[in-house]
């Protein structure tokens, strides 16, 4: 009964009308409180990561994550530095260790800032790569699959093969073989996570291919390439967007996991997973060393997942009314 009512009470929205979806998009997003919280946290995280890049890099950074103060090691959060034993340039800029210091006396707040940028770029670049490959492969498989069945079979069986690998161990193996760098990590995560997007896009294309406007575009002499990339992909982007948002969360998690295991971004550069890993030796003496990065990862991943779920509800008219 409830479902029937929900399905019929959608005046003003056509199920297959992405423009109508766009118009109600802002309003629906506002109604979905969890998604809004997710989006807000994401925006804050984005700003912090950008600020973090500016404040922790350069020759004389505002927050220097690499200053070692052995006499100040394992200070708890919000403790004040001992000004007598520190040279002036080593004093933290805020006059207080916001998140405490680690076993080498480095400012955890500064290191967290630096790590935020790593998480952000790894998340976005890796997902960017996987979405690009996913759209390309899915688009080709879905569009040409009818005429050239072997292309479809080839791509989709390759997807199946890739899905058979436990991807985290595949990543571990590849990372062990390649020189450790942030870019390798991004590329590898991207190259092992495109399969879901490919399946989504192919499924969308299978139905879009039969739509009248695709035939109409062909009747006008529009090339296959242009039909795929200009006419069909914008119509298929909604589920890709959802999976990309959730994909960012899982890419950040994967990177943190790799760093935790010591296969991530190489040491002088701070990452959340790395801080967590270093801190685990002092988990009872200095719990803030594990708490700060752990909590940061939790919040960011949770916010992306909430936003992704919210997006899916908003873009899916059948689920939409349940939000109320």
């Amino acid at each position: 009964m409830m479902r029937d009512a929900a399905d019929t009470v959608t005046p003003g929205f056509q199920v297959d009308d992405p423009v109508a979806l766009q118009q109600g998009f802002g309003q629906l997003l506002k109604q979905n409180r969890l998604a809004m919280i997710g989006l807000a946290v994401f925006v804050v995280f984005f700003c912090i990561a950008l600020l973090g890049l500016g404040l922790t890099s350069g020759r004389n950074p505002t927050f220097d994550p690499s200053v070692v103060r052995l006499q100040e090691k394992l200070r708890p959060p919000l403790s004040k530095p001992n000004l007598e034993t520190l040279s002036t340039e080593d004093v933290p800029r805020l006059g207080v260790y916001l998140f405490g210091t680690d076993d080498l006396g480095r400012d955890v707040f500064a290191r967290m800032l630096q790590g935020a940028w790593v998480s952000l770029t790894v998340g976005f670049v890796a997902v960017g790569i996987s979405v690009f490959i996913g759209i390309f492969m899915g688009g080709i498989a879905g569009y040409f699959g009818q005429r050239h069945t072997f292309i479809d079979t080839l791509i989709m069986r390759f997807v199946d093969i890739m899905l058979c690998f436990p991807s985290f161990f595949l990543i571990l193996t590849v990372v062990a073989l390649l020189p450790a760098s942030m870019y390798n990590i991004m590329i590898i995560i991207g190259l092992t996570s495109w399969m879901g997007t490919t399946r989504f896009v192919r499924a969308e294309f299978l139905s879009l291919r039969e739509q009248d406007f695709v035939t109409a575009a062909r009747a006008l002499g529009v090339s296959n390439f242009r039909i795929i990339f200009r006419h069909m992909i914008p119509n298929a982007i909604a589920p890709v967007l959802v999976s990309a948002t959730i994909g960012i969360a899982s890419a950040i998690l994967t990177e943190a996991g790799l760093s935790f295991l010591g296969f991530g971004v190489p040491p002088p550069h701070a990452t959340w997973g790395g801080i967590l890993s270093d801190g685990k030796r002092f988990i009872f003496d200095a719990p803030w060393l594990t708490f700060a990065p752990g909590f940061a990862i939790l919040i960011v991943v949770l916010s992306f997942n909430l936003f992704g779920e919210g997006l899916r509800d908003i873009l899916n008219p059948k689920l939409r009314e349940r939000q109320g």
Binding site: A216, P234, N235
Partner: peptide
């Protein structure tokens, strides 16, 4: 060519 269904023959986006 002009098609039968004007509702679906234009790309909605």
């Amino acid at each position: 060519m002009v098609f039968q269904e004007p509702m679906t023959s234009l790309n909605p986006v």
